[in-house]
């Protein structure tokens, strides 16, 4: 069956996603501070307006719109103009108002009727933690996600992961990742003493996707996805190392062997029996 995709407009990210997000899905965009979540989310909405004719709503809990207008302008995105054209809305509110349960209409109902958006961003879902008890968080997040789906919105839900780097990685600790249809991860990685940024698709329900971590940069035009970190392994653990080629592995082994001398003779004999000769001829 042919599935409608909602393209981010970032061509390499769309390729990673197999064409874009699935229409009507709620996708978690997780990352620690400074990884580019807000930039990517804004770019998703701005590209929606400028490239695909999709109106969009950005809901912010903490950052004031004034700052978002200014930061967007640095990338050449005039959000105020898009608002004047009824293609964009920037709503600044508190989670308790967005999650109001005592009947009546949602504060999003008005803007949704006004501009008929196809895309929506919530910055950030992790702010719900400040207003909702932990045991209620999953239920409230579910209610919010179902509201967005009912309205037919393809939403990006930002999630601040406190885990910056290291080997005990989890996207959320309260099970929100199970509710989301997809998870895009932004992560800083330290390689050869410099901080670089990686993007990966951890989950995309009902669709194949790129399994590699790719490098990305925040340029003057927004997010630019680049090549994968194919020469490195262990990026998710926070201890990346360059992958050794077979030739390098044999060199290392030889060096170790030279040190161990006679003790290693029996082991070397077994090792050489184990490695297929063809592979050795091919790579050495």
């Amino acid at each position: 069956m042919w599935m409608v995709r909602v393209r981010t407009g970032i061509s390499d990210l769309d390729k990673m996603l197999g064409g874009g997000f699935m229409e009507g899905d709620a996708v978690l965009l997780a990352g620690s501070a400074g990884t580019g979540k807000t930039t990517l989310a804004l770019q998703y909405l701005v590209n929606g307006v400028t490239q695909f004719g999709d109106a969009g709503i950005y809901v912010t809990f903490e950052q004031l719109p004034d700052q978002i207008y200014r930061d967007a302008k640095n990338f050449g995105w005039d959000l105020r103009k898009m608002e004047e054209q009824n293609k964009f809305r920037l709503i600044c509110t508190s989670p308790e108002l967005l999650l109001e349960t005592d009947g009546g209409e949602s504060i999003l109902d008005g803007p949704i009727k006004e501009i008929r958006p196809r895309r929506l961003v919530i910055d950030s879902l992790s702010h719900l933690e400040m207003f909702v008890p932990e045991r209620e968080l999953r239920k409230e997040a579910y209610r919010l996600i179902m509201y967005l789906k009912t309205k037919g919105l393809s939403s990006l839900l930002l999630w601040e992961s406190p885990q910056i780097i290291g080997n005990s990685f989890s996207v959320t600790e309260v099970g929100i990742s199970f509710l989301a249809d997809g998870i895009v991860l932004l992560r800083p990685v330290e390689i050869e003493s410099s901080m670089r940024k990686a993007i990966g698709i951890l989950k995309l329900r009902g669709s194949d996707h790129d399994k590699q971590l790719r490098e990305f940069e925040i340029t003057t035009q927004g997010i630019k996805v680049e090549a994968s970190f194919s020469e490195y392994e262990g990026l998710m653990t926070g201890s990346p190392r360059k992958k050794a080629t077979l030739g390098e592995a044999i060199d290392q082994f030889s060096a170790a062997f030279a040190r161990k001398e006679k003790k290693s003779c029996k082991f070397l004999y077994r090792f050489l029996q184990y490695i297929p000769c063809r592979l050795l001829y091919k790579n050495c």
């Binding site: 719109p65 600044c92 509110t93």
Partner: peptide, 15 residues
């Protein structure tokens, strides 16, 4: 500066 604010009194006060 922020015409898109729609918030509770407490929320506005915090800002």
């Amino acid at each position: 500066k922020n015409p898109g604010i729609i918030d509770t009194i407490d929320g506005v006060a915090r800002r």
